[in-house]
Design a protein around this nucleic acid. Structure first.
Lengths: 228, 228
DNA sequence: ACTAACATGTAAAGCGTTACATGATTTA
DNA sequence: TAAATCATGTAACGCTTTACATGTTAGT
């Protein structure tokens, strides 16, 4: 079992094959065609990527944008704002950038999902906890999952409305900018619906575990091991 | 929206409040009472943590063990092996270490689950893909989920058997070492059952998304936006 | 007067991985 | 004799976050 050697496409170092997934995610955000500022990107990332691929911090987004620009995948320009707030820099994807994300999306091996489930890590150490604390971890997690579900459902609805609106719009296909709101495509909507179900399942799984624990606690023989 | 200020318990830097979650996970592995080598830890981590909290690499585990020893949370000794393979260093949790994990598990805020879902990131950019590629990503992900489900179910069964065996054993409570195989408690079994259901759900969600896509592709109006 | 939102960035530090080095034993 | 498994570690690198710095405008 040698330190998990996968992939060795480039012999050199760290990440020879190009950019990290986060860069592609940011470039993906731009691939819907709109001109966006780092701030916009962060907000929009919080309502999309966040549900299935965490949301990078502001500083990382700004950093990624610089990297993308240097790579020729995006261009930026300053825009002075009528309303007076500080000038902002907006980014737009280039043809090379669009070709690059498309290539990435089509050719690159899909990374396996990575899950770092804090609540389960805690529960796995249940032998160190009081029964009420176990209960509390699951209750809180169920609540979290439900709130995420609601948010995903909400965002999905918005995106679907906008997608329907722009779908009836004859201005399509020619690289035109879609309607206001950005990334209102069928696939963003689909992934948000997926997220809605995912978090519904998380909520149900928390409840199921809760009843597993109750069953073990009350059963005469105690199924697997004893509970405190 | 200031760079997401959560938690500010310690003003200083990075991680004032103590160790990263990975350290606690490794110490948690030791908290079941057995004396384990870094190599053992990695293997056992691959059959437990892996399903809900990724598995650290060998090098990280060796690093964490050193850190835990320096912190006084674990002790190590070299053992010469009869069979002749290279001597190995085995680690055991200390009383201070057990107190520390317990404190961590009881007092520290539970981190929200972090999900980096490669397949969904790809599908979110479905407008850059061919329909067959979309299909392929979902098919592969469904297969991956099913194989994880089987592995989790398998491990759960083993752990439950061992837990039942040691539960009938009157040697309990006094810090005694549980039976061979390690971490054969009710909670590891419970989290593995959770994982089994989690991956079953992942598999089903992939199928559900597949039929969503088919429905959109064939429906007259096209629900939300158009598909390629 | 204060707070929140808008807006962009730098610096420092920690987390985690990959590649590499080393070497014994077992199995094909 | 080649490969896999056991077994431990170092070095380099890149990713990501946190804290900090700075300044404007809008709302309460």
């Amino acid at each position: 079992m040698a330190d998990d050697t996968r992939d060795t496409t480039a012999p050199g170092h760290g990440n020879g094959r190009g950019l990290p997934a986060t860069s592609w995610a940011v470039l993906g955000l731009l691939s819907f065609g709109e001109e966006l500022s780092g701030y916009d990107l962060k907000k929009w990332s919080d309502r999309s990527l966040r549900f299935f691929y965490w949301s990078p911090s502001f500083s990382q987004i700004y950093g990624e944008l610089k990297r993308l620009e240097k790579a020729g995948y995006a261009t930026s320009r300053m825009v002075a704002q009528e309303t007076g707030t500080r000038d902002k820099r907006v980014y737009r994807i280039t043809d090379a950038g669009l070709a690059a994300v498309r290539d990435w999306a089509r050719e690159t091996r899909v990374d396996a999902p990575v899950l770092k489930h804090g609540p389960m890590l805690r529960l796995w150490l249940g032998h160190l906890l009081e029964p009420e604390q176990i209960h509390e971890v699951l209750r809180q997690h169920g609540e979290f999952a439900e709130s995420m579900r609601l948010r995903a459902a909400d965002d999905a609805q918005h995106v679907e409305q906008m997608a329907d609106a722009t779908a009836d719009d004859p201005d399509e296909g020619g690289g035109g900018v879609p309607g206001e709101g950005g990334a209102a495509g069928a696939y963003p909507a689909l992934t948000l619906r997926w997220a809605e179900r995912y978090y519904a399942s998380e909520r149900d799984l928390a409840l199921a575990m809760l009843s597993d624990i109750e069953r073990l606690g009350t059963e005469p023989g105690g199924g697997a091991g004893r509970l405190p």
